[in-house]
């Protein structure tokens, strides 16, 4: 059974996503901080995009850089790294419109509650983030649904 993903728009500039994972925080944190693991899930296959580079220097002040085959590039800086509990980074590719992402890992009874909060500089920046990449996603999700039906995937 899949755990439920909840999405909340906290304010005009902030979104919060929560999800529980059936594993200790140590493991979930590892999947967020090791590039070879991170790249397995950050770009869902359904996006039809590929990561050609994924560099992550996960420590306070360290930088990251994600390069997509389609010529897009995301980069930024980690401003807080607390093993197994908290991760904060600033997206710098958008210049002044960069957002701050805060991820917290809360372990309870061997499970981990993950909270991802994205804070944008303005409502406009948040709206733009939603309509850009995510717009393309909807189409590819539909394709994925069809594909999954074909494959009989569970």
């Amino acid at each position: 059974m899949k755990n439920r993903t909840t999405v909340e728009r906290k304010s005009e500039r902030e979104t919060v996503v929560t999800r529980t994972f059936n594993a200790p925080a140590r493991i979930v944190f590892e999947a967020w901080t090791k590039p070879e693991l991170f790249k397995k899930w950050w770009l869902p296959k359904s996006m039809g995009m590929t990561l050609i580079a994924c560099e992550m220097d996960v420590r306070t002040g360290g930088t990251y850089r994600l390069v997509f085959g389609q010529g897009m590039e995301f980069f930024g800086r980690y401003t807080e790294v607390t093993p197994h509990s908290r991760l904060v980074w600033i997206n710098e590719e958008g210049g002044d419109n960069g957002s701050v992402t805060t991820v917290t890992f809360e372990e309870e009874g061997g499970k981990t509650l993950l909270v991802v909060s994205e804070l944008y500089n303005s409502k406009e920046a948040l709206d733009a983030a939603g309509t850009g990449a995510a717009d393309a996603l909807v189409e590819t999700f539909q394709q994925l649904d069809e594909l999954l039906v074909t494959l009989g995937a569970s």
Partner: peptide, 27 residues
């Protein structure tokens, strides 16, 4: 707003489904 949230949720659901697999493998 609803449409925006929907798209946003779809993105994260897709990511987390993949993340589940990574986590299971690590376990």
């Amino acid at each position: 707003e609803m449409a925006w949230l929907d798209r946003y949720r779809q993105l994260w659901e897709a990511r987390f489904d993949e993340l589940d697999k990574v986590v299971e493998e690590l376990k």
